[in-house]
Write a protein that binds this DNA or RNA. Sequence first.
DNA 1: CCGGAATGTCAACGCTTGTTGGCCTACGCT
DNA 2: AGCGTAGGCCAACAAGCGTTGACATTCCGG
Lengths: 184, 184
Amino acid sequence: MPRRSDATRTAILDAARERFASDGYERATIRAIARDARIDPSMVMRYYGSKEGLFAAAVSVDLKLPDLAPLPRDEVGHALVTHFLGMWEDSEVLTALLRVGVTNQAGAERMQGIFRDQLLPVAGTVCPDPEQVPARAALCASQLLGLALARYVLRFPPAVALTREEAVAWLGPTVQRYLTAPHP
Amino acid sequence: MPRRSDATRTAILDAARERFASDGYERATIRAIARDARIDPSMVMRYYGSKEGLFAAAVSVDLKLPDLAPLPRDEVGHALVTHFLGMWEDSEVLTALLRVGVTNQAGAERMQGIFRDQLLPVAGTVCPDPEQVPARAALCASQLLGLALARYVLRFPPAVALTREEAVAWLGPTVQRYLTAPHP
DNA sequence: CCGGAATGTCAACGCTTGTTGGCCTACGCT
DNA sequence: AGCGTAGGCCAACAAGCGTTGACATTCCGG
């Protein structure tokens, strides 16, 4: 059932996502988040218990990875990169998660969980040898996260300047190879 | 001329590198660094002026990238990845820089500078079209940093489990293609 | 229309942080 | 030997943090 305070709760979560994305965990203060949401800091505590609780509530990631199985084998790389870049530009959650994951143990573990629960299964449907799935999925993750890092977080100018189509054209074959090519 | 306090100074820098690498900028406190170096926090201020000054002094990166020009064209990828992974495992400086670069504007700018001053020139010597050098170098950086991220920072288990040889065998062709293959 | 629960504000707490200035010590030069 | 200076420690500061509990307000079911 909907609560009267739902507007406030989502305002807090929105502000939290924004702050975590732009400042990282430590510098995203509860006070600043509360100021953005135009409420008192103590409300954040009341609704989410602690700063960690707020982070857990604000940053929940569903990559919504598409089912690659029905696709022609030589298009999975293209499809995965396209989808991933779209997700990244759709919201700030992924930026927030990466910023926090790099400096915070809990954040890193959450990213490990997303990798394990969301990318690994999808990779399993297109990799030839089941035994190689984890390594191949990790290689995909490294390339996808690496581009996100250079483009959305570190903002290397040439990485920012790439159009999404160019990025897909370059990364697609890489991811494709990591997933389906024979072990080198 | 050597100063009497050089031992202390390097002890501070060593401790700072370690703390920045494992904790990131905000959680690496001057007090903790001073404790590690077995001196008073005020000494850090005396010698390096501020926390930012300490970071600038502690984290100076020379990737020592090899000259790729004399190499056979089809070995540059392999060589670059091998060298990069070696640098990463040699010291904690790169981990520190990445951890800080992700949450700190000054850190991000320093990484941009390293990319521009160290990777770009080397890429220029092996890329066919000078106009494509920045984009190609950025793609290389994305893959190299991405693996470092997954392996040394986020510690995705399959990325950690890769031997260095396996990592080189997988990433080598990717970097090779980013540098020398025709634009897709 | 009234009373309790939900919503929100205010002020303060204990703690940690970067940073500062004063003081003591001990080396090294003449 | 004596003195200046560099090395080092101690105590404190103001600011900011997460967090807490007491108090005001608003809503809604009886």
